Amino acid sequence: MSKIVLARVDSRLIHGQVVTKWLQQSAANEIIVVSDELEQDEFLQSIYLMAAPPGVEVIIKGTESVKAYWENEAAAKNSKVLFLVPDLTTLREMVEAGVVKEAIQVGGLGGGPSRKNVVKNINLSEDDVEILEGLLAKNMEVYFQAIPEETPVPIHKLIEKYKTL
């Protein structure tokens, strides 16, 4: 049975820090990227597949197809998985589906309308705060950490900051 060794929310998905630092830190040998948009775009998929180092399998699935993959194919493997989602909405769906049960690392959420910057790389909206509070209510460990060298910050501290902005 495959095991998620790191569940990470990062709007950039596979990028330099993920490849050079988090793969090594987590000892993952497989990356599962969950993105409905990416699942439909073969060109972008090819770019993400090339970004992964040799020996690391990359699986790109949408929110529905990853559930079947996790229950069937991943269950038949013995992989250490770095599980990447681009946003908190996707994360919530993976938690509700029972795919993600582990601690959740928030590494990067981009800016945009109605989003407030609470710390580098993290911009939250009201919907994001609602999702995070729901995860905390389920007693899930959720924290912010951009790179392994940084000390993890409990997500409730970023929620508190959001509410004062």
Results as ranks from 00 to 15, higher is better:
V56E: 07
L135D: 02
V142F: 09
F43V: 15
L23T: 09
P53Y: 01
V5G: 11
S26R: 07
L23G: 10
V33A: 10
I104V: 15
W70A: 12
N29S: 08
L44C: 10
N29L: 10
S79V: 02
A97C: 12
L13V: 13
E130D: 12
E150K: 08
P154W: 00
T151F: 00
E39P: 02
S46R: 05
R8Y: 03
G62Y: 04
K101Y: 04
Q45N: 07
K21V: 11
A74N: 09
V153P: 03
L91Q: 02
K77W: 02
N117L: 14
D87S: 11
Q40W: 00
P152Y: 04
V18D: 06
S26Y: 08
H15I: 12
I159A: 01
E57M: 08
E130I: 14
E42Y: 01
K116M: 08
G62K: 02
T89L: 14
Q25S: 14
D41K: 12
E39F: 07
V66S: 01
F144S: 14
E133C: 02
L109V: 14
L135H: 04
I104G: 05
A97V: 08
D128I: 09
I47S: 04
I60E: 07
F43Y: 09
G98H: 01
K101W: 01
V18M: 06
V66F: 02
